[in-house]
């Protein structure tokens, strides 16, 4: 049961968060008065139409984008900017092509001042965890899309964040690889007991991975919606309850 995952660390509180962008003199409101509590160890999926502000919300949580107003608290403490307790997994693997798999996975630790040997050792652990032990010496150009994304995931895990922020991490993968990776994400999330905030445009992925799904509305005067997915992990995509949940989520978007 996912409730067993919930620990005190990695709790996110979002209060009255607003963000708009200025485009050619016009102001575009992307996030308006968002209030949300994410428990430590929870897995939250953010879905919404393209342009509904999913990435912006995730970037504000990461500290890569400053909100106009409102606050983000982590474990009760207000945060400004980036922090070691959060790690981002982007849609593209964003690997440094001049570093091997090992070098890339250890990169985050080295940036944070962990000595090379220790960084390599910790990196190896996570390389094994994502199933790439044989490839620690490979160059990024030698990896398939799915493998490269595993490296990106391992790099984020290696800094042992409390909160993992993922922006459509599997969006560019083919359907088969994607399903395998979704299963791996569930396994990793279970093993690492991190809070996971996952932006996705794939409703099935949201149901497969998340405890709760946040639906961002397209029109900013509409409130956000939260849908509980009360199914045990690992989930079975053909289970009637799974299908029922998916149908309910699709109905949110007027789909059948």
């Amino acid at each position: 049961m996912s409730v067993a995952q919930i620990s005190a660390k990695g709790e996110v509180t979002i209060r009255d968060l607003s963000k708009s962008f200025r485009i050619d003199g016009d102001s575009l409101t992307v996030l308006k008065d968002i209030n949300l509590d994410i428990s430590g160890g929870e897995s939250l999926a953010i879905v919404g139409a393209s342009g509904s502000g999913k990435t912006t919300l995730l970037r504000v949580l990461a500290g890569l984008t400053e909100p106009d107003s409102g606050s983000v608290l982590i474990d009760g403490e207000p945060v400004h900017g980036l922090g070691k307790e959060r790690a981002v997994i982007f849609q593209e693997p964003r690997l440094l092509p001049w570093l091997t798999v090992l070098g890339n996975v250890a990169f985050g630790l080295e940036v944070q001042g962990i000595p090379g040997d220790e960084a390599a050792e910790r990196a190896r652990h996570y390389i094994r965890l994502v199933g790439l032990a044989e490839f620690e010496g490979a160059w990024p150009r030698q990896l398939s899309g799915g493998m490269a994304q595993r490296v990106g995931i391992a790099r984020a895990l290696t800094v042992q964040p409390e909160i993992l922020l993922l922006d459509e991490p599997l969006g560019a993968l083919d359907a088969m690889t994607k399903m395998t990776m979704q299963e791996e994400l569930v396994r990793i999330w279970t093993e690492e007991s991190v809070t996971m905030v996952l932006v996705t445009h794939d409703l099935e992925e949201a149901i497969f991975l998340a405890d709760r799904v946040l639906v961002l509305p397209k029109t900013k005067d509409t409130a956000i919606r939260l849908i509980d997915i009360d199914l045990p992990h690992p989930r079975d995509r053909s289970d009637p309850d799974f299908v029922r949940n998916r149908r309910q989520l699709m109905a949110e978007f007027g789909l059948h």
Partner: peptide, 27 residues
């Protein structure tokens, strides 16, 4: 710029970004 942002997301300083990202990328 995405690589620079990746490094920044791990808390890399400007000097570190220069040494570990910009310089090797320019070689």
């Amino acid at each position: 710029a995405k690589l620079i942002e990746m490094a920044r997301s791990f808390g890399a300083s400007r000097a570190t970004i220069f040494r570990r990202v910009i310089l090797p990328a320019s070689v």
